[in-house]
Design a binder for these strands. Structure first.
Lengths: 348, 348
DNA sequence: TCCATTTCCGGGAACGTTACCGGGAAATCC
DNA sequence: GGATTTCCCGGTAACGTTCCCGGAAATGGA
């Protein structure tokens, strides 16, 4: 059977004894057809093992049934989760997903966008490289932004995690654990996410009547090495008996924990670390990394939903911010009065 | 310009003053065209911002420029790396990749294969769910197997990691570190990978003149919890002063380390663990997980290369096994005579 | 019974590209 | 210089589907 020509809709029509128009109507369950002939056509299709040619459908109808996803790196666990969510949701909608990794590189991003346009995808979900604003507008296809760079682009739908809520969650948790003056370990100054994180911190400080300037800051790359280096600098400058760090990224947080251990300090006894992302690797460190988890999979799902709306013309240009979740694992000491009190009472 | 009709090849032809056949020849750089007219056409295409419609190309020529990738889970770090490699190589070949996750589920796999057929992909790279052998043969498209189930399918190209070499590497390393009788922590009996791992162990034992039956075995699920449970059982049965475990999977290995810690044992002082996979999370445990890394990204790349050959009719049905690599991090104690001797001499 | 309406179906034209065939002009050969 | 080849190029027919239009049959109401 390997060499036999592929069955087309005219084969189905012939076998069912109808015209190809009627066959097409039956196969795309259009309303203007009698149930009897519809069944006849469907039976013929099943008997022949007919499979609709999506290329031809896409060409004639303009709907290719394909969506594009352009993210920094599919091998990054966070983005892999996003891709998984998008993929699942796309499959539910009967669409396929073309996935591309940009590596934070303009040229790669541009090439991928061109490939997607040529493939005639119906829309694209993209986490754009920093300042490729113009390219996106020239793009001429429905698109939805995903991730942290949403707010730089007005009048476009976007899906991201709720940094404000996440930072509030984190700082309130730190306060409740008795850490009143945590170090903020942030990313490089040119990254958009940094400013957004910092703004959320400021807003929250004002709400809580705290002076934002009182929180010390240390910068580093968004990597384990960057976190290690930043933590080393912190330990040089801060000789407090207990040091608390709120890292803007789990990899940095893990690097910070390693740096503390290298300096002979124990976590969480002498050093407390709070991460941000929720990567799976955080569960394997010792102690496990307490962190704020971004809803990566849900992000991917919602992005597809927004994109489908956008394609359908229901372009509400909505900005969706999904809430984050605290995962307590053990990298944070409880220095609250309650905890200290109970410990003292135990000693008594 | 958003509403302007998309440019087609006839627009390009008109602007260049040639027929659309000639324009097509220029754009698909066919040989039978003079350099002068070719340049003219290309200039016109550039000026109009023409982009070739791949749907139409695929429909007419049969070459859609798309490849399929069906893996268990794109959110799994190992498979994400594979996907990344495949994606990069496909992009180099001018192809796009449709990625699907099967979740080790027959129905999902079947649905995805159908979607890929309907999308008219030129070929598929697949890590098939255990016994879906027949489905694959009925598939009627070029395909390449990736991962551990290769050898169950005769006469098909496959790309996988070299388990035999990996096991030899691991066991020889364990021997060199003085671990002569490691526990083997294997996956569930119904998994194909288990049998393959065990066979490699047997072969190597015969080479080294060791009785394979002398190596104790404990089974568990391929997860952190599975490894934890298996390790707990091992610790109940084995009261040796130092216990060594060779896990068939990094997640199990990490679970084993956690179980040892829960039992009050130190790694690597009292417990040595060797993993297998090379997932990024292994770098964050304490101590870092010493493991054998599978060349995930290269696997993806080679799979695409094999698939391209397969599609081109150069079907050599090659089986490719890529070598694995040892990553030393610290979860293994050196109990070799040399190490013990030097330690004793230090004491003197 | 007759006209109007609805229901259902067939015929043909697209969609944008490449494959194939044939032909004119230039180049080459004896 | 005529015959033959080579080199380019244009015209036309596909590829498989959906969309639009018109018409036949069935249905409804007076």
């Amino acid at each position: 059977m390997r060499g036999s020509r592929r069955q087309t809709i005219v084969d189905v029509a012939q076998r069912a004894g109808v015209s190809k128009s009627t066959a097409a109507r039956a196969l795309s369950n259009a309303p203007e057809i009698s149930p009897a002939t519809r069944d006849k056509v469907l039976a013929a299709a099943r008997a022949l093992g007919y499979e609709r040619n999506h290329l031809a459908v896409g060409m004639r109808s303009g709907r290719s049934g394909m969506l594009g996803l352009v993210i920094p790196d599919i091998a990054n666990p966070f983005w892999a989760e996003v891709a998984r969510g998008a993929q699942d949701r796309a499959a539910d909608a009967g669409a396929s997903l073309l996935v591309f990794s940009s590596d934070w590189d303009h040229d790669r991003e541009a090439r991928h966008l061109q490939a997607l346009r040529q493939a005639r995808v119906e829309g694209v979900i993209i986490n754009p490289v920093a300042d490729s604003f113009d390219d996106l507008h020239r793009f001429g296809l429905p698109f939805v932004l995903i991730g942290s760079s949403a707010e730089r682009f007005p009048d476009t739908s976007s899906v991201g995690s709720d940094i404000t809520q996440a930072v509030r969650l984190g700082l309130d948790y730190l306060l409740s654990m008795g850490h009143r003056r945590p170090w903020l370990m942030l990313g490089p100054r040119w990254r958009i996410a940094r400013a957004r994180f910092l703004r959320a911190v400021n807003d929250h400080c004002l709400e809580r009547d705290v002076d934002p300037a009182s929180l010390p800051i240390e910068d580093g790359e968004y990597t384990v090495e960057g976190g290690h280096a930043a933590m080393t600098r912190i330990l040089e400058r801060d000789k407090s008996p207990h040091i608390c760090v709120f890292a803007a990224n789990d990899l940095m947080a893990l690097g910070a924990m390693m740096a503390a251990r290298d300096a002979g300090l124990n976590c969480p006894e002498q050093v407390s670390v709070l991460g941000f992302d929720g990567i799976p690797g955080g569960a394997f460190s010792w102690p496990g990394l307490t962190t704020i988890e971004k809803p990566a999979r849900a992000l991917g799902r919602r992005a597809v939903e927004s994109l489908v709306d956008e394609i359908a013309g229901r372009a509400d240009h909505s900005r969706i911010y999904l809430p984050c979740r605290l995962i307590e694992r053990g990298s944070l000491a409880d220095l609250s009065d309650a905890a200290v009190g109970s410990r003292q009472s135990e000693r008594v």
